[in-house]
Simulated assay, not measured.
Amino acid sequence: MKKVFVSICVAGVALAMFSCHSVEKALPLSSINGEWNIIEVNGSKVAPDESKNLPFIVFDTATGRVSGNSGCNRMMGSFDVNAKPGNIDLKGMASTRMMCPDMTTENNILNALGQVTAYKKAGKNKMYLCNASNRPVVILEKKVSDVRLSVLSGEWKIKEVNGEAVPFGMEKQPFIAFDVKKKTIHGNAGCNLMNGGFETNVDNAKSISFPGVATTMMACPDMELEGKILKALNEVKSFDVLSGGGIGLYDANDALVLVLEK
């Protein structure tokens, strides 16, 4: 009887350790803001890819936007910023549709995120995402970004806008130049000069936006491309380094709107 009693106690302790039940006060939504590596799904550790990168998820608690990478594809969605502290619903996450050699990790992550109803602190720099049964289905670890704002420094050609290639050899080739220290930009949108500043978010190393970019007012025979570039620039919310070495600028839905090339 004594052995059975001990066994039950140990099992109970283990269950408590991995439960999302807590007598502590629920964490405010701001506690999940920023970028997190996905390190475990349904009790299984997540292995890095060939570039030693882990799948990750980014929460913007100001706008209710969520984005990230599930191992192959980029993912995006939204959540209710007015939910009760400790609660979060990640149903309806969408993703891009590239096919990769092994989709197992990606499918496991997306399925687990679809079950998430709550979050809870899991030690220093870690967070549980829990299902309706208060079981952790995803474990996150705060990400130390390996992409620094300084990567943007200098002048870049605007290569693509919303998937459309920008013609090479134009009289006024569209470009954008970043002064990272001053947080300013200047460039050419295809006809007119543009100048302004950019803003970032300390909780997300890849965040960037361009409020209030001003341009000169010259009229050119074809203003269509310029209009597309300025519209796309106004929609930018984040950046990342592309596999080919360029820079991608993404909108709030994590759609690639501009491609820059040195």
Rank of each mutant, 00 (worst) to 15 (best):
K52A: 11
G68Q: 09
N42E: 14
K45M: 14
E40G: 08
T63H: 01
G34Y: 03
P55N: 09
G71V: 08
A62K: 13
G34S: 00
S31Q: 09
C72A: 10
F56I: 07
R65S: 07
S51L: 12
N33G: 02
A47G: 01
S31P: 01
P55K: 06
L54C: 08
W36R: 00
P55W: 14
G43M: 12
G68V: 01
S67E: 08
L54N: 06
D49I: 12
D49A: 15
S51W: 13
A26C: 00
A26V: 08
A26P: 14
G71M: 11
S51M: 10
A26T: 02
S70M: 04
S70R: 01
S67T: 13
T61Q: 04
E40N: 14
T63N: 09
V66Q: 06
R65I: 04
K25H: 06
F56A: 03
I38Q: 02
V23I: 11
N69G: 02
I32E: 00
I32M: 11
L29S: 07
N37H: 15
F56E: 11
G43E: 09
L54P: 03
L27Q: 12
G43V: 11
E35P: 00
T63I: 07
P55D: 06
V46A: 02
T63A: 12
L27T: 04
K52L: 14
N42P: 07
S67D: 02
P48N: 06
G68F: 10
P28D: 03
C72T: 09
I57D: 05
C72Q: 02
E24Q: 12
G43Y: 14
N53F: 13
V58K: 12
E35M: 13
S70Y: 01
D60M: 08
V58R: 12
G71N: 03
F59T: 10
A26N: 14
K25R: 13
V41N: 01
V41E: 02
L54D: 06
N53M: 14
I39C: 05
W36N: 03
E24N: 15
P28N: 04
W36D: 05
N33T: 09
S31F: 01
G71L: 04
